[in-house]
Amino acid sequence: MSLIERLAPQEVGFPLPWARPARNKVRMSDALLLSMKVNGEEVEVAAPAHFTLLEVLRYKLDLIGSKQGCDKGDCGACTVQLDGVARLSCLTLAVQANGREVRTVEGMTGAHLHPLQDCMDKSVAAQCGFCTPGILMAAEAFLTKMGRVVTRGEVAEAMASNLCRCTGYTKIVDAIVDASAIMAEGKN
């Protein structure tokens, strides 16, 4: 049991999704058994039909890297990849990810930093860090799709879904352009 699951709702002070079954009238028997591949690992998880992919990732699978920001598709903090395509997990129903491959920022943990992570670090492109998981997921999908060195203008257009209130974007764009050079070089 994770730390957040052990917290009783009254200690948190705001409604936790698992503390509201009575009000939502959800019975466990209504839950659907979903199977998906999350960061390369086959996962089976039970969740009601009205859960978003983000809620399943964060509250059922404990993958709290993807952030819950605006929760209505404006901020991009919840960006994940579904079958290699970047999308907003707060507006994706968990059942839509059933049988598919999900990649979250947790999938970027390995012995070595991903070129994007390395460049984000070197350019100091993360300040508070709340938008960073979403930026990494959106940027990785974008660079994989382009497969070449990208321009600042292309980055600005491709990353228009992801809001950052700290950096002013300049350093994020620097990092993505640098990473595109490293990733394109690695391919050749």
Binding site: N24, Q68, D71
Partner: peptide, 12 residues
């Protein structure tokens, strides 16, 4: 946090 109302789902 915005919660979805309760509903069922179908994927034809």
């Amino acid at each position: 946090m915005l919660r979805l109302p309760v509903f069922g789902s179908k994927s034809p």
